[in-house]
């Protein structure tokens, strides 16, 4: 009885003794980080794909997602949002060491260069000032915005990959997962731009989406296998994804919505033309899959315990 009483009393202090989930970036206000990270992926991916196919509407939507959905959510998550400027030079030189600071810089540069590109790429304005003036500016700022879109899309992977205490995140492949998943999301949204009457080819976007889908499926399988053998704690993370509390989001959200449904639609389009309804279902499923991927990654971030006795974790 006394032992039981002692144990009850001690329960509140059983902290970092067993593998412990990170909660700051997924629970309560942390949900904002999850959603912002997904918008990062969608926005940067769409911008990059649109750059490749020269779709002004795609560029615009990608830019709007980053500037009006991703950035405000990230800043709103801060405990002191009005101090946001303190993360930027000249107030801080943290970009030399911090991927978080670099990410903010990438986003700000992306916003600025992207805006100039969009202005000079706007057909009416380009015709007004002359394409000989507008085009060089458009392409120059396109390159600059593209580089920063890559940075914006990938920095979240480096942020998480840096965390040594969470072995599931501490994998070299994570930034690659981030950027490739972003580009795949971009292809999905590009289909939507095409369907909505924008200047993007739906069939081209669908082909690109299919290739990226195959690459991403392989990448995620490789990631899970490599994480599985990294450490005991990473193994727990993988188990939570496959059979544990996050299994619903993994199998239902990431696999079914993010992979199976888009793959099935791609398969249908191989043997004939997929209907608009099917394509819309694929786009929506793909986008929901993007949310599921970020949720899964953030949710199964588990710390190794503090004590050397259990360092085998």
């Amino acid at each position: 009885m006394s032992r039981m009483a002692t144990r009850q009393w001690m329960t509140t202090h059983e902290w970092m003794v067993k593998p412990m989930h990170q909660r700051e970036w997924i629970e309560r206000r942390g949900i904002m980080i999850w959603i912002a990270e997904t918008f990062t992926s969608l926005g940067a991916g769409l911008y990059l794909v649109s750059l490749f196919i020269n779709s002004w509407w795609g560029l615009l939507v990608g830019w709007l997602i980053i500037m009006f959905l991703k950035l405000p959510l990230h800043i709103a998550y801060f405990g002191k949002p009005w101090r946001f400027y303190r993360t930027l030079p000249p107030f801080s030189n943290a970009w030399k060491t911090s991927w978080f600071a670099r990410g903010i810089l990438f986003s700000v540069f992306f916003g600025t260069f992207g805006f100039v590109q969009l202005v000079f790429g706007q057909p009416d304005l380009a015709n007004l000032i002359g394409t000989s003036i507008a085009n060089p500016i458009y392409y120059t700022f396109g390159v600059l915005a593209g580089i920063n879109a890559v940075g914006t899309g990938i920095y979240g992977g480096f942020i998480m990959n840096y965390v040594k205490g969470i072995p599931f995140w501490n994998q070299g492949l994570l930034p690659v997962v981030f950027i490739l998943a972003g580009v795949a999301d971009g292809f999905g949204l590009t289909m939507g731009i095409g369907l909505g009457g924008g200047d993007a080819s739906v069939s081209w976007a669908e082909t690109g989406s299919s290739y990226l889908l195959i690459i991403n499926i392989l990448l995620i399988i490789v990631y899970l296998i490599s994480a599985r053998y990294t450490s005991e704690v990473a193994k727990i993370s993988v188990q939570e994804l496959l059979t544990g509390p996050s299994a619903f989001m993994f199998w239902g959200g990431l696999v079914t919505l993010g992979m199976v449904i888009p793959a099935a639609v791609s398969l249908v389009s191989l043997f004939g033309e997929a209907s608009t309804v099917l394509l819309i279902i694929a786009i929506v499923a793909h986008t929901l899959g993007a949310f599921a991927l970020k949720y899964c990654l953030l949710k199964v971030g588990i710390y190794r315990p503090l004590l050397p006795k259990v360092a085998a974790y």
Binding site: M16, E24, F78, R83, G165
Partner: peptide
């Protein structure tokens, strides 16, 4: 100066930081 981004909390492998909400 702290902006309250909580990256330090995430990055600390010893989890010895607390966000004052």
């Amino acid at each position: 100066i702290c902006v309250g981004c909580r990256y330090c909390i995430i990055a600390c492998p010893y989890q010895n930081r607390t966000f004052l909400s």
